[in-house]
């Protein structure tokens, strides 16, 4: 089973799920001839069609020479390493409402740097803090774009009282 076949199969699953959801879109009395579900249904059918063609082609056509895959163990290792970055991102989403933007982004820089081969040192800590300050300066101070403040404003307010 080559990659194209799997890609076609995934495409078919997406098309089926999407089409099923498109069928359930409620029509309004204001609806035009096409309706809110009209084009989505066509998109779903077309994607299903192309996915089936891709699967059939993958089944009956030789794979080009340049598409030789890496060994499975290597692929799994690569995907795992990539997913580590995703985990750092998810960790940021969970932590930033509590830690606040400057601290959370400094932690992201430090952890992502360590994860990508950096070594734990004072220099790395300094660069993480400097990077976080730079981003805070541009986004919050300069552009006035609010970023999560974390628990700190409430904590400071509580201490004042």
């Amino acid at each position: 089973m080559n990659r194209d076949f799997v890609a076609g199969f995934i495409g078919l699953l997406i098309a089926m799920g999407y089409y099923a959801m498109a069928m359930n879109i409620q029509n309004s009395q204001l609806a035009d001839d096409v309706g809110p579900g009209g084009l989505p249904k066509i998109y779903g059918l077309l994607l299903a069609g192309f996915s089936i063609v891709l699967m059939l082609r993958a089944r009956f056509r030789p794979e080009p020479a340049h598409s030789k895959q890496r060994p499975v163990v290597e692929e799994i290792f690569a995907a795992k390493r990539g997913l580590g970055i995703l985990a750092i991102g998810i960790g940021y989403i969970l932590a930033v409402p509590f830690l606040g933007y400057p601290l959370a982004i400094a932690v992201v820089i430090a952890i992502a740097s360590l994860y990508n081969g950096g070594s734990l040192s004072l220099r790395m800590a300094g660069i993480s803090l400097l990077g976080a300050f730079g981003l805070w300066f541009v986004f919050v101070f300069l552009l006035h774009i609010g970023q999560p403040a974390g628990i700190w404003p409430d904590l400071i307010e509580g201490l004042r009282r």
């Binding site: 970055i85 750092i88 991102g89 998810i90 940021y92 989403i93 930033v96 409402p97 933007y101 982004i105 992201v108 820089i109 430090a110 952890i111 992502a112 740097s113 360590l114 994860y115 990508n116 081969g117 950096g118 790395m124 660069i127 993480s128 990077g131 976080a132 981003l135 986004f139 552009l143 774009i145 609010g146 970023q147 999560p148």
Partner: peptide
């Protein structure tokens, strides 16, 4: 490279949040 990649990731997380101030968008 490890600093560069870490900074790009931090920039992306900050920039995406800035579109609608939404962590959902970051996700």
């Amino acid at each position: 490279k490890h600093y560069l990649m870490a900074f790009i990731f931090a920039l992306v997380l900050s920039g995406v949040y800035a579109i609608h101030n939404s962590l959902f968008h970051v996700g």
